[in-house]
Amino acid sequence: MAKLSLVHLSAYFGRVKTLKDINLDIPEYNVTAVIGPSGCGKTTLVRCLNRMHEVVRDARVEGEVLLDGENIYAPGVDPVQIRRRVGMVFQKPTPFPTMSIEENVIAGLKLNGSVRNSAQRAEIVERCLRLAALWDEVKDNLGKPGTSLSGGQQQRLCIARALAVEPEVLLMDEPCSSLDPASTARIEELVLELKSQYTIVIVTHNMQQAARASDYTAFLLNGVLIEFGETKQIFTNPKRQETEDYITGRFG
């Protein structure tokens, strides 16, 4: 079933329309990859799914995004609530520089006041760091600043941080673009492990990554959704000429 549905979704920066009338159903407990050449609106698309698009100056959205059938852009809906349910990992790792590794993991939960005692806190930190496949590397240094880690570790820390608030959906905006191949492989493994518990949307400019790690793929070109389908079908038997051109490397 569809966890998220985009209904006639258009997004603007000022007068520039970056997404044009997108209709798309994102299936639950699966990994959906969003691919396309740079500037096609991939990032804007995922940022619309947890109302991060509107944080930018002059940005606005038309149409609907349904989360479990409810429009997250309906009047009166609080983006804070939406972002709690739809977590996000960014292109560059963004640990809070003034917080330790442990504090970074717990940062989102602390807002909710749902961490009651230190035992529970330690348990959550360990569980999330294990989920993010970072525990073994940092378990002796939880008090160190988050920024002291390597790039790949920082990104996994950010994933742990996003998982700690127990979202239903995890958005990943090119999470591997600033990482080395080894870290990239770890994060891809992680994505495959997490999909049993989360609905994952991953933006990538790396087609091998989309082919390896995703179940469904959406191909975007100039803000238009060209094709959406099972990853296997998209990469072996695309229906549209543009998709074929892109995945065979004829442009982009």
Binding site: V55, R83, R84, M88, F90, P97, G108, R161, A162, V165
Partner: peptide, 14 residues
């Protein structure tokens, strides 16, 4: 950096 602001928002911060 804008990325820090967005990271906080993405965690569901007011």
């Amino acid at each position: 950096p804008a990325s820090l602001r967005e990271a906080a928002y993405a965690l569901g911060a007011t």
